[in-house]
Design a protein around this nucleic acid. Structure first.
Length: 114
DNA sequence: TCCATGACAAGAG
DNA sequence: GCTCTTGCCATGG
């Protein structure tokens, strides 16, 4: 995937992806949001698009991609292995706890925007 | 242009 | 509570 990489659109401030990334940046430290939640906040996105946009992010981006998980409170595995483990590690270092079923309690750690 | 794929979600049965 | 189906739409072959 290397044609019109969405993160290049970050520099073009009128891109719909920009809005998506801006919202993700607003997720506070120690909290998590779901794909569907982000999608609804943008207004014109679908959860699949959110996942797709995040998959296109480069390493070392300032976007807190690790704070976006699925509706079940679990980390969605990507095609490239190893990242789910990394993501969980980062979240735990931020204070997010996972139970024995590898899922977080969204009623506690879920982000609730004003 | 058509088809398959993908870090998902919500409704129906 | 479960599984199955459908909606979503950008991207690549």
């Amino acid at each position: 995937m290397n044609r019109d990489n969405p993160n290049q659109e970050i520099n073009h401030k009128s891109s719909p992806y920009t809005r998506l990334y801006e919202i993700i940046r607003q997720i506070p430290h120690g909290k998590v949001a779901t794909y569907g939640q982000i999608a609804r906040l943008t207004g014109n996105f679908t959860p699949r698009m959110v996942g797709y946009a995040l998959a296109a992010l480069p390493e070392g981006t300032d976007i807190p991609w690790q704070r976006v998980i699925n509706r079940q409170g679990r980390i969605s595995p990507r095609s490239h292995s190893g990242y789910a483990e990394l993501q969980r590690h980062i979240l735990e270092s931020e204070g997010v706890r996972f139970n024995t079923d590898d899922q977080t309690d969204l009623s506690i750690f879920g982000w609730r925007p004003a």
